[in-house]
Amino acid sequence: MKKRIKQFFLFFGIFSLSIWGGFHLFFWIDTQEEKRLVIKNIEFPRLSTKEVEKLQEGDIILRRGYGFFSDIIADKLNGDSYDVTHSGILYRKDNQWWVIHSLSSNVSPIEGVQTQSLQMFLKYSIPGKILIVRLNKITPSQGREIIKRAQYYLQKKVSFDHLGIIDDPSELYCSELIYQIIDNDLHFVNFPTEKKARKETFYSMKTLYNPQYFKIIINTYPKKKERP
């Protein structure tokens, strides 16, 4: 009996280790492919000088990233017009544009909320697939409040929300960071309160370019041809 128990725990340990190893191996392979594509497309422009001049602090940047999980987000969490997969909050530091965003340590050297130069952030975007949006009727002062709140989560080193538990600021995924700030923290927008509708709002990239809440300031997506 004891021998069987030992065999069971040995088998379970090997099985768990195999799952863990396979999981991390998959992310490693996916990250290597992302790096390859970043280098391949490094010379392609993302935002022009005129477009950068339109930016305001507190604007939201959306990009279509590389990789398997970006493909899933692009397909499942968007509408027909755009396939963005990641988001961040723009702010100025030392006369340069920076982005506060949240990433998992499975795809980033840093876990959770972090800051990155806009230049570096753009390198991880597929060329021709970037949106800059601005909260409707927002003032420059409110934009700075958004940044201040984002910096609060940055300083707290809030981890990435792998489980997707909304309305809990102890862990935040990329778009959840934005929703948490503009709804729960600052009350600049009132998202649905009914449980199902709220989940649909939070578990979607479409919310970030929904004209009910945001205005698209910059759109680098190719213009769709009108049907004859």
Rank of each mutant, 00 (worst) to 15 (best):
L62A: 04
D83T: 07
I60F: 12
A74Q: 03
G21K: 07
A150Q: 04
N190W: 05
S105H: 15
R64L: 05
L118S: 05
L122V: 07
W97Q: 08
G112V: 02
V84H: 00
I165F: 13
T207G: 03
Q7H: 13
D168I: 07
E43V: 06
F12Q: 08
G65W: 00
V113P: 01
I42W: 13
R149W: 12
Y209C: 05
L55T: 06
Y82N: 00
K225L: 15
L77G: 00
F26N: 08
G88I: 01
K50Q: 13
I182E: 01
F27C: 02
I138R: 11
N78I: 00
P140F: 11
Q56N: 15
K2W: 13
I14L: 15
I165A: 11
I39A: 14
N136Y: 08
T31R: 08
L118P: 02
P45W: 06
S170A: 09
G13N: 10
D94Y: 15
P211T: 09
Y173C: 04
F8M: 08
T139K: 11
I14C: 14
S108C: 12
R63I: 01
P109G: 09
D183A: 06
S16E: 12
I165Q: 12
L103E: 09
H101G: 01
D183Y: 02
Y179Q: 05
